[in-house]
Design a protein around this nucleic acid. Structure first.
Lengths: 225, 225
DNA sequence: ACGCAAATTTCGGCTAGGCTAAAATCCATC
DNA sequence: GATGGATTTTAGCCTAGCCGAAATTTGCGT
């Protein structure tokens, strides 16, 4: 049945998974998928039909797709590969934080189960990757923590900076250069009105950083003591 | 010009390189190439034409192919990836000796230059892989040592077991299980006539091993004190 | 020197995955 | 309830690699 899961199919499954998370509960549209993967809407449409044919997604024409259980397994397997590799590359090989995503993006498709196990063991079976994203377990269970973007915060909010999108190298370099990393506790000291930037302090460092626009939205945090 | 070197092309370049080594100096035939890569002669023929078109090989129809300088660079780049990865997998991740080849076979095509450098540095810029094969330098220079198969040896010959084909897992398991590894010094104690097996002792271990057939031919040695 | 077997190339066809352009469908607005 | 713009799907086409079958070339043995 499922004996042919090409890299392209893995990429589609992964993209559908992450888009399902965003647009909570809803079906993923062809357009969103196409944009995410950098292909034309026509290409996405025909691939979606194929994925439905092999039972990885449920496709309602003109409505969108939802992953089936089997499709979810494919997505989580690739996600586990990706995030384990990110962690491994950062920790064992010293690949810079803002580069691990691109490296993992290609390696994830050719990682054997055996190598996956060896890497996980060597890392001590980690549960989050260098961006703070959770790594699915070997049994493909994953806990997505509820987070909000820093753009939603108000003056006085405190909490923990949990994760940041791994796909924008420039953002990662920016944060990295300022010593801001997932896991840091923070405090919002000021905020400009009308969707303006928030001013926050991270970890032990007394510096106050202005965070606005796409950056603040990409920085996901858990609010509270 | 060369901006498209697909995995398939890399595999062809690598195969042509190693066949050129064997059939010393001569052009590589389409059939040999097809057999090596496990594709039909028709497929190999058409790919050879493509490779000639993009300048990686010189193809004389019905005669065979020879790598151009650019083709050689492609082959050595992939070979460096392959052997560095074998070394890395064996040393850092504990992948069994007989499995590293297959893992490296897929990873070699997706290894970025940056990762290549990091891996080489971590290993201390090694010059041979776990099978005793030389690793091309970053500048793609390689020294192929002159070796003979153990099947050519006579009683009383001594020397060093240098390398063994990396592509037969069963052979590797067999040698591994008996504690025989590249780098071992050996002594030929007996030999049966008419192409029969040689009996040899390796390293410190007093055991005498009978080695015949394809195994003896695959075991390459340097003869002499 | 000639013919035949083996090697090689050519030919037509297949799948995966992508594209553009055109047709179909959906939905918000009037 | 119609209609126009946006979205989605279909249709036709392309390239990379692979295949088997048929045509071609080579070169060995006599």
């Amino acid at each position: 049945m499922t004996l042919e899961v090409s890299p392209a199919i893995q990429d589609y499954a992964k993209a559908i998974y992450s888009l399902e998370l965003r647009c909570d509960g809803g079906a993923v549209t062809t357009n969103a998928l196409a944009e995410r993967l950098g292909v034309s809407a026509a290409s996405a449409s025909s691939m979606v039909k194929r994925l439905d044919g092999i039972g990885l997604v449920e496709h309602v024409p003109y409505k969108g797709v939802v992953l089936t259980d089997r499709g979810m397994k494919v997505a989580l397997e690739v996600l586990r590969h990706h995030r384990l590799l990110e962690r491994y590359l950062a920790e064992e090989l010293g690949v810079p934080w803002d580069r691990v995503h691109d490296e993992a993006e290609v390696l994830e498709h050719v990682l054997s189960d055996e190598l996956e196990d060896l890497i996980a063991a060597k890392l001590g079976h980690p549960t989050i990757d260098p961006h703070g994203d959770p790594i699915p377990t070997a049994e493909l269970e994953i806990v997505e923590r509820a987070t909000v973007g820093m753009d939603r915060l108000e003056i006085g909010d405190i909490g923990r900076f949990v994760r940041v999108s791994d796909s924008d190298p420039e953002m990662l370099r920016y944060l990295s250069a300022r010593g801001i990393a997932p896991g840091d506790d923070f405090e919002v000291l000021d905020k400009q009105p009308f969707g303006g930037p928030v001013f926050a302090r991270f970890g032990e460092c007394p510096d106050v950083h202005p965070l606005g626009g796409r950056l603040a939205a990409a920085m996901r945090v858990e609010v509270g003591a």
